[in-house]
Design a binder for these strands. Structure first.
Lengths: 197, 197
DNA sequence: GTAACCCCATACTCTGCCGTATGGAAGCTG
DNA sequence: CAGCTTCCATACGGCAGAGTATGGGGTTAC
């Protein structure tokens, strides 16, 4: 009774691992090499431990992926609230969305990795929920900006498509990263073309 | 001397397979399940044959992927010439590009599969060449339309990003397919927003 | 027809990962 | 400090795919 939820301690303060450590490590591995590279033994080597630990915390590989995706979906919902839920003017919210989508790189790389396997029975539903949630938020902002429902949805699809596509080009190294000066110029171009209606 | 290059015969006229048959089957498998699913034995089962055949035609799995990618790059170059190389007015060429990009579905599904592994040492260079070739063609069209070099390149990036992103949303089933009536409406919206300058 | 060659089937070995079983070390509890 | 729980190491069996070796059936050439 005297304890204060001794859960979620990361591996930095312990050398014993928690399920959350495994889930986060799985997400990072997915971000780097894709879902198909998610394997127990390589993940254990990455953590400097053996799989004996893993099979104590999880029933199997399947459950790890499910819980990791669940974890990521929550993280994304949190980020979305920051980017589009702020009580700003709609135009300002959209600009913020475009700008913010170039920050949390880990979440984005996970997203692109998940986009690569939309037919997987586990990532499919999660991916669909996350994407439609984002697009819906975008559409709502465009509606507040004065567009009718149909035009707002089409514009939201277009903005979101260009965002996803930019992630792809970024992964190919064909487009300026957010460090380079050209990046700001491009984002400004996107906002002028797609957001300012 | 009297022969007339008895090469490229497909498996339809023979039950003996050519390297081209293996390459094309590899591309189709990649389109369906991604690069990580490219394996020799499953591919052989798919073709109703054993891997004894494969290792006669190819040194190994590595070379199959290389030659399949080479094959795909040539196909894509051909399609690009049809879509953007036609001697039409620039505006008409761009519209044609947007429309055509919803046709050859196999090539597009291969492209999305390759986008999923941009860090692979074999697909990376090919992907980069194909993508930059496409964007360059788009930028040239925008320049002919009157934009200066910088604006044309930015607009080309934006158009191409929205194209790639649309492929992703299509794979997730979150956006109308080209059969449904809403599709034409959306493409029209894209052209009005991004092409008509 | 038969010899040579092309193409494929079969039968191996080897490696990497999954999942299980079991023992042991570190931590909490009394 | 005994005893118990928690967490991990080690060692196993099993499976799937990579690549190799070798033989056989079909085709072509002479």
């Amino acid at each position: 009774m005297s304890n204060s939820t001794p859960a979620n301690r990361s591996s930095t303060e312990r050398n014993r691992l928690t399920p959350a450590d495994w889930e986060q490590a799985a997400l990072e591995l997915i971000a780097e090499k894709g879902i198909s590279a998610l394997a127990v033994e390589p993940l254990a080597r990455r953590l400097g431990i053996t799989k004996g630990s893993f099979y104590w915390h999880f029933p199997g590989k399947h459950e790890l992926l499910e819980r990791a995706l669940e974890r990521w979906e929550n993280q994304d919902r949190y980020h979305l609230k920051l980017a589009l839920g702020a009580d700003l003017a709609p135009a300002e919210r959209l600009s913020q969305f475009v700008w913010r989508t170039s920050r949390q790189t880990l979440t984005h790389r996970i997203y692109t990795a998940l986009c690569a396997a939309p037919n997987d029975s586990r990532v499919g539903p999660v991916l669909k929920r996350v994407t439609s949630r984002r697009i819906q938020q975008l559409g709502a902002a465009f509606e507040e900006l004065g567009l009718d429902a149909h035009a707002a949805r089409q514009r939201a699809n277009l903005v979101y498509s260009s965002y996803v596509g930019y992630l792809q080009l970024q992964a190919q190294g064909l487009v300026p990263d957010r460090d380079e000066p050209e990046f700001d110029s491009y984002v400004q171009h996107v906002i002028e073309t797609l957001v300012d209606v």
